[in-house]
Design a protein around this nucleic acid. Structure first.
Lengths: 199, 199
DNA sequence: CCTACCTGACTGGCCAGTCAGTTAAATACG
DNA sequence: CGTATTTAACTGACTGGCCAGTCAGGTAGG
């Protein structure tokens, strides 16, 4: 299959997921977002499941590239930016897409292949957080008693939770972002936290 | 419909959800867990969706009762217990059930009725956390600069995230529990946190 | 004329929901 | 009291729509 075709089908899958979500996604929906027919999808991919796995793989590679790009500024800014970026919808349809991904996450326990791909994403986020925290400690902008491993996991959890709570009950992401920023400044970053005001 | 029948069908729905999850739950699966036939379910409930809503309602009432029961001990213990209880599978099949609920949460954006029920659960947890924090402040076991509203939301988010990350990528709940406990002791509770050890 | 790519039409399985009864218990009636 | 009638609670068999996946071709480039 040509790179062009791959790219088109991955794009169509993205758009279809945004429009319809995962649970009610039909092969026809993906075909409708592309210039190809439903049968063409089955020509290129063995099954719907197979296509979705390829899509996750594709997404992983995109994310991997993207995540290593935005390396501008000091660790403090980078950490704040990275964390808040996870909680800020950027493009059109980003929110719908997050929801679709959440649906896939909820399927992970029933599907090892999904689980593996999703573990990849989580690992990327976790590693990034950990290395930013470590860099922060090395340069003295992150508190010395912060354990990068623990804190990275804590942050990864919290980002997940904020997204989930936003999707589930409509809790505003902006507020979750503020709370997490406050946490970072108070607990993690040097020079703006609790040690300033004792009470 | 008799209370007995209601109870049986709600129980059957619970067991079926544990066994099959939400996405691949069939009316037949629920019937199989009860002494009734599939047609009987349709006799009592207008549709599958209707039955599931009734189930969520039932669950809400159970949870509401349960949550107001465990009112033993000081606010500190209660807070720690409550938070950690959310991150500790109790009964058989609790984990599977949490997964099924997560699947429903992921459907909330497409289904207002689900969203309302789930907002109810979230509200129950949030209110409990907030009042425990307030009680803690009043009795001097929770730091005075803690905002009960913000911290309750932060905790609710974090609990959601820990569960999600556990289900999605198999991150151990026990570790998430420890991290959250550490957070509470360090940031929220008086007398065991950062102010003890400066370096 | 062969291969890669693609299509419209079709098929088979799945499953929510329906329907035409059946049973048993309650209620009315002589 | 015994018998007729109604009603609630069911059941097994069926139906109709949906959709992933198939297939018998078609077309264009090498």
């Amino acid at each position: 299959m040509s790179d062009e075709t791959t790219e088109e089908l991955m794009g169509a899958t993205y758009r279809a997921l945004c429009k319809h979500g995962y649970a009610s996604l039909r092969m026809q929906d993906i075909a409708d977002e592309s210039t190809k027919s439903k049968a063409a999808l089955h020509y290129h991919y063995e099954s719907k499941h197979d296509l979705l796995l390829a899509f996750l793989e594709h997404l992983y590679e995109q994310f991997e590239t993207e995540i290593s790009e935005d390396c501008g500024g000091d660790p403090e800014t980078q950490l704040l930016t990275f964390v808040e970026e996870r909680l800020t919808p950027r493009e059109e349809g980003q929110k719908e897409f997050q929801t679709a991904i959440l649906e896939i996450k909820a399927q992970a326990p029933y599907d090892e292949a999904y689980r593996e791909r999703l573990a990849g994403f989580d690992g990327l986020v976790f590693d990034r957080l950990r290395s930013l925290l470590q860099a922060g400690i090395d340069r003295g902008v992150v508190e010395e008693d912060v354990d990068p491993e623990d804190t990275a996991a804590f942050l990864a959890e919290h980002i997940n939770g904020a997204q989930l709570r936003n999707v589930t009950v409509g809790a505003p992401l902006a507020e979750a972002r503020q709370r997490l920023r406050a946490y970072l400044r108070r607990e993690v970053l040097v020079g703006s936290g609790a040690e300033n005001g004792g009470g």
